[in-house]
Simulated scan of single mutants.
Amino acid sequence: MPTARLSAATLALSTMAASALLVGCSGSVNVEKSEPKLSADKLATTVAEKLAATTGRPKPDITCPKDLVGKVGTKTRCELTADDGSTLGVTVTVSSVSGDKINFDIKADDTASPAKN
């Protein structure tokens, strides 16, 4: 019977997720519009920076498919991709909005998905 093993990158992703969950992670960004909105690219950059600061590891490769609207409770899903192609989901939730500043919490999934072949 074959034994499943985690790759080093998948293990690192799981460790990073666990670290982010234990420490907690949040961020905030100032935006300059009447309806606060953070672009998907800026969100991905901010999430990567916050995860790196929380875990003490280099900035991960993060992609976010859509802009984040500055309304409390709004959620979006981003994806962290490791060097070996394995991925980890990251949920971003708006916790508060003050004028043009969007504050949000970041929560990484508990487990990584293996690389797609």
Rank of each mutant, 00 (worst) to 15 (best):
M1R: 09
T3G: 14
A4P: 15
R5A: 13
R5G: 07
L6R: 15
S7I: 11
A9V: 14
A9F: 10
T10Y: 01
L11G: 06
L13D: 10
S14H: 13
A17H: 04
A20C: 03
A20P: 00
A20G: 05
L21V: 00
V23S: 15
V23L: 15
C25R: 00
S26W: 01
G27T: 01
G27V: 01
V29K: 07
N30Y: 03
V31Y: 00
E32N: 14
S34H: 08
E35H: 06
E35V: 15
P36F: 05
L38S: 02
S39N: 04
D41G: 05
D41I: 11
K42V: 08
L43I: 01
V47L: 03
K50V: 08
K50E: 12
L51F: 10
A52M: 07
A52N: 09
A53L: 14
A53Q: 13
A53W: 05
R57L: 10
P58T: 05
K59M: 13
K59F: 10
P60W: 09
P65H: 07
K66G: 02
D67E: 02
D67V: 07
V69W: 01
V69D: 06
K71V: 14
K71S: 12
V72Y: 00
V72H: 03
G73P: 04
G73S: 15
G73Y: 05
T74D: 08
C78H: 11
E79D: 11
E79F: 07
E79M: 12
L80I: 07
T81G: 12
T81Q: 14
A82M: 05
D84A: 01
G85A: 03
S86H: 06
T87E: 10
G89W: 00
G89N: 01
G89T: 00
V90I: 12
T91R: 14
T91W: 06
V92S: 04
V92P: 00
S95P: 03
S96N: 08
F104E: 05
I106S: 03
I106R: 00
D109V: 00
T111N: 13
T111G: 06
A112M: 08
A115G: 11
A115P: 08
K116C: 03
N117P: 14
